[in-house]
Every structure is written in C-alpha cells, then in structure tokens.
Amino acid sequence: MTRTLYTPELCEIIEIRDETPDTRTFRLRFVDEEKQKNFTFTPGQFGLYSVFGEGESTFCIASPPTWKEYFECCFRVVGRVTKALRLLDVGSVIGFRGPYGIGFPLESWEGKNLLFIAGGIGLPPLRTVIWTILDPGYRQKYGEVTVVYGARSVSDLVYKPELKQWEERSDMKLIKTVDPGGETPDWDGKIGFVPTVLEEAKPSSNNTIALICGPPIMIKFTLPVLSSLGFELKNVYTTLENRMKCGLGKCGRCNVGDFYVCKEGPVITAERLKSLPPEY
C-alpha cells in the first residue's frame, strides 16, 4: 500500500482505564505485529492519535519503551477528537503516527539524581521516564529518584495505583499533594500547592536534574523555587504543548520563535525556553 509521511498505523485499544472523571488511559497495540515488535521511542516523544472521521490529536507516549507488548496514552477529554476517543471501546482501532520529536536525554543523565515535578495531567510525559529508569536494567545507572506530584483534588490524581506502588518502593521517593480543599478524609498525602510542597521538601540540587511538567501556572511558580534550591536552568527540563498538526516540521503551526516544537522539542531545557519568545 502507498504510504506517505501522513499515513497512520492502526492500533487496537486493548485496555481502557479511567484515571480521573475527565482523563482516560488507552493501552494500545499495533494491529501489525511486526510494527509492535519494532516500535521503539525515547521517553518524551509524542504521537498523533486519530479517530477516523474526527481527526488527529497530539499526546505524549505515556508508557516506557521498556514495555514491549503495548504502549499507552493518557488524554483529557476537551474537544472534538478527545470526545470521540472517549466513545471508543476495547477492540476499537485508532490511527497512530509517531514517534515524533526529541525526547529526554536519559543517557546524558547517568550517574545523576533525578527530581520529577508534575501537576495534574503533567504526569504522563514524566511517567514514561520514571518507569524507564525504574527498570532493573536502568535503575543502577541513576542516583536518587524523587517524584513530587500534585493535583487540584484527590480525584484529579492520575495513575493512582502506580502512585501506591511508587510509595512502597525503597529505590525512590514519592511526595504527593493536593491543593488545599482538594483532600478527602482518608487522604494520606500532603495538602498544598506543588511549589510550596517542593520548597518544604528541599530536595538537593547537587548533581540533580529536575523534570517539570504541568499547567503553566504551576511551572511559573515552581521555577523560582528550583532556582532558590540551586538548580541551574540548564539542568531543568520541561515539555511544550504547542498545538500541532503535522508533527513533522511542515505545517508551520507549532513554532515558538525559531524553535519547531514538533521537531526540536517537545522536551526543552528551562535555559533554552528562556531564550525564546513567550509564545507557549
């Protein structure tokens, strides 16, 4: 069959999990077994997921490349495509193009501590990194692993069963929090906004890389906290979410200044981000 750079692959939905009232995870497998076998990517890369007849949507690949049998995405229902995605059942097929973009430079972080800071639906792009480095083949290459994760309320936390697993592990530390008022009677985490909780936790910036992903307001207030903890901007990574169409550097939609998010991002250091116009 003729293929072009815009031709998707078919993927079957093999499992559906509701993360929050408006956020859902799909576990996907390429219909073509060879494709699934050969599918590799770097954590942080994204794909274009499509419902035929509704269109394409950009989501990160939320699972680690160490999971070989399937991959996952996690999406919030906000518009045309995501509403259509929500209507699909296990066994339905969707389109997928990717992986696109440049992911996190995991290899260059070997020997370092990693600090993950996520808010709300900002966890999926970091979850792929977290599970990658927790893999027995990778874990010893990195130092301490700390995850600070917060959401507006307990019901807005994604990957709840995994948060439990992370809490129980001895090779990492999870600090979870919800915004004041978002707690439930049995909530056993912290209550406070992510930047405040981070400030109290005082993670060391020594030999540490920080990865931060979440709503713009959280990023805005967290960056100064990281600076006061001694993090240099070049050691702070985030991902951009500019609207995309092609994902391939053709359609001209995603640029922030001369930075084409789909080609040179979505992963970017806070240092590079600071040099760009504030169009994100």
Binding site: Y6, F52, G53, G55, K245, C246, C251, G252, R253
Partner: peptide, 24 residues
Amino acid sequence: CHCFDIVDEGTVSGGKRMKLWDAC
C-alpha cells in the same frame, strides 16, 4: 506561505482526511 491544517471529513461510515491551507 505554506501553513496547513489536517482535518477529517466524513460520516460514521467513512470519509477523508484532508490537508487544507491554513493561516497564522
């Protein structure tokens, strides 16, 4: 100027994915 959009058109039983001129 070369910016374009990618949009699906169709019904529940089928359709087309279109590449369309768009504008910044």
